[in-house]
Computed example of a mutant assay.
Amino acid sequence: MSDLVLHGYWRSSASYRVRIALNLKKLSYRQITHDLRTGEQTDPTYRAIAPAGLVPALEWGDHAFVQSLAILEWLEEYWPDPALLPRAYEPRAIVRGMASILVADIHPLNNLRVMNYLKSNLELSTEAAHAWMSHWMSEGLAALEAMIARYGGDYAFGDQLTMADCCLVPQVYNAERFGVDISRFRHLGAATARARAHPAVAAAHPDLQPDADPA
């Protein structure tokens, strides 16, 4: 079997999602970092792997997979145990919906390139840009709070870690960085805390990655 190579960046929440899934499935992988702050992800060599110039990308043999949710789905199909999606169709759709709120509704509005555009092109102050991003994070997290209140158990959906948790933990990390009050979301906060305590999730934390900034 070919080695798995994860192209990412320590503080990228999308890379964080994939690290969690790889760890939960107990897969070994090598990391290659692309510092988003200096634009390393736009280098032509990396764009040959990931044409959009975004992280993460996961290389496996002759293949390069992009987009974190697609990577999570591939990992689930190729290494189905432990499962990150429920077996029944309806619960699987609910978990995918939770993950999509995080990946499609929230994250695109609070990543680095959006923040840079708000500040550089629209000339918003740092404070105004952060307030704009925090607003949309709060809106999405409120929707997820309602779903976790209905479907959650120990974790975001039921009592097993799922793809929803792989996406939730990094988004809460982002929200906390921008000063979003997570205590408003009781069920979401409790599910996140329990997920963070799992050794595989804890090991994926940005601060523990080889390319993390010195403390």
Rank of each mutant, 00 (worst) to 15 (best):
V95G: 14
S28M: 06
G152I: 00
E77V: 10
A149H: 09
P80Q: 03
F178W: 14
Q171W: 15
R177N: 15
A57W: 07
L27T: 05
L4G: 08
A202G: 09
V180M: 14
H34Y: 03
H198Y: 14
R194W: 11
Q160L: 10
G61M: 02
A202W: 08
H187W: 12
V103M: 10
L24T: 02
P80A: 04
I106D: 10
H135C: 09
S125V: 11
A52Q: 07
S12K: 09
V180D: 13
R37C: 07
P210C: 12
D159A: 10
L168C: 12
P44H: 02
R11G: 08
L58Q: 08
L4K: 09
T192N: 15
L54M: 01
A156I: 13
N110Q: 15
M1C: 04
S28N: 11
D62M: 04
Y89S: 09
S13A: 12
G97M: 12
Y16S: 00
G53V: 00
A131I: 08
G8H: 09
G179K: 14
P170D: 14
M163E: 14
R196Y: 08
L22T: 03
W74D: 06
R196T: 14
L85V: 05
H187Q: 15
A14E: 04
R186A: 15
H198V: 15
V95Y: 10
F157S: 12
Y155E: 11
D181T: 15
P56S: 08
I182H: 15
V18F: 06
G153L: 11
A143I: 00
W74P: 03
E73S: 08
P86D: 05
A195T: 15
P80W: 02
Q160S: 13
A215N: 10
A14H: 04
G158Y: 13
H205Q: 12
L4H: 06
V18Y: 05
A203W: 03
E127R: 12
E90F: 09
S183M: 13
M98L: 13
H7R: 03
V55S: 01
A212V: 02
N111E: 02
D181C: 15
E77G: 12
L36H: 01
R92V: 02
A204E: 05
T162A: 07
S120I: 06
Q171I: 15
Y16A: 00
E59S: 14
A129P: 01
M147P: 00
A83Y: 07
I32R: 10
P108L: 07
L109M: 15
G39M: 02
D62W: 02
A57D: 08
D3V: 00
A202Y: 11
E123N: 15
L118G: 06
Y16I: 00
H205F: 10
P108S: 11
S120D: 12
Q209M: 09
P80I: 03
G97R: 13
Q67Y: 03
E77I: 11
E59P: 04
A50P: 00
A203C: 06
F178C: 13
